[in-house]
Design a protein around this nucleic acid. Sequence first.
DNA 1: ACCTGAACACCGTTCAAGT
DNA 2: ACCTGAACACCGTTCAAGT
Lengths: 225, 225
Amino acid sequence: MNATPRPRSTRDRPAKPPLSQDAVVDAALALLRSEGLDAVTMRRVAAALDTGAASLYVYVSGREGLLQAVQDRIFGLIEFEEPDQARWREQLHALLDRTYRVLVAHPGIAATTMSEPPGMDATLRLLENMLGLLLAGGLVAQDAAWAVDIFALLVSYAAMEHEARRTNPREQPEELYQRFTGQSPERFPLITAYAAQLVAGDSEERFHVAIDMVVDGMIARAGRA
Amino acid sequence: MNATPRPRSTRDRPAKPPLSQDAVVDAALALLRSEGLDAVTMRRVAAALDTGAASLYVYVSGREGLLQAVQDRIFGLIEFEEPDQARWREQLHALLDRTYRVLVAHPGIAATTMSEPPGMDATLRLLENMLGLLLAGGLVAQDAAWAVDIFALLVSYAAMEHEARRTNPREQPEELYQRFTGQSPERFPLITAYAAQLVAGDSEERFHVAIDMVVDGMIARAGRA
DNA sequence: ACCTGAACACCGTTCAAGT
DNA sequence: ACCTGAACACCGTTCAAGT
């Protein structure tokens, strides 16, 4: 039927799937996991799929659109619990912990989650679930709606901080402590005095405290209203 | 003394200053204000100074170092008040408002403040002042130290949100409201029911509420301890 | 000693020209 | 109709070769 000579087998490469949105996102995700966000360029994703960068534009709107699809795929990995009034606060922490872990497993993606409003499917499910937990906690709807945004911000920031401490020597707590204590005590009396407090805790502890502060603040507001 | 012919005057161009760190940062700042962060490339900054990109590396360590110096210059524009126990909370809001306005006046720089730990002079002064306000409020030192980080995050986020809403039609509240209410009420009962609350408030209002939640949360924690 | 043109190794995106 | 090589218009950073 086909006169073109094929090398050795009917399939000359191991099951190259046809291009599709999913295949493009898969390739980007693999690159993200193995080499981080900087490696996720249109050209390298295309190369992993044995094609040219131009071919990707049929399936994604551009690099930004690709990254959004990747983000949504990652959020799709998070499992949800039905909100339970008796343990909503614990459930909130657990949900945010799972989100944190998924973000940390995909270096660089946390930064992109902060600059995009929720819109895709898995992102909306995360939003829906967080909102459910806060409403189960008896919070005022307006406060809950605003707080969801803050929690999303805090978890992304914690993941970014974790990555920075892992890869950037300048962000190591010891380094930072030295920098704070090395300042002039006349000019910076508080920074030098409280350097230990400023660098205390790992990203996960800092992030749990932050969540608790916001939750306690919401409850205080609800009590006043 | 010099045989090279000069055109018309002893100075053939209007007082071109010699290169220096300050001159490089000035040029970057001007570009940032007029065209945003994307315009601040080594090549364009150099072009504004009538030289090549390579020449900048004598004064800054690279693009990242330049952006840090720019950030510190911007924070240097913020004025500080001596912390006053009687009105620390109001002073905190005012300080964060001034920070917000300075960030908004320099599109794109807010994103860079989130990924760099405090280290330069003006950034440390901001940190020192915020810490002073929280301690004047009678908060536990460890809580105050952690909260400073959260406030810095919240103000940067608010500035980013403001910029996004100004430039990205997809982030306009009306657009977002349509997207939320357009979802399936079976799959997303809360998002569809509370779409109005989710998009309520401009970036400044949302940011003030966030600050109050954190402050109230800190006070609640201090009361428990 | 100081400065910089040109080169290196990349980018995202577009589009004419092929099949 | 679909796909893509090559081009366009850029990047940050380095370094040999000039003054």
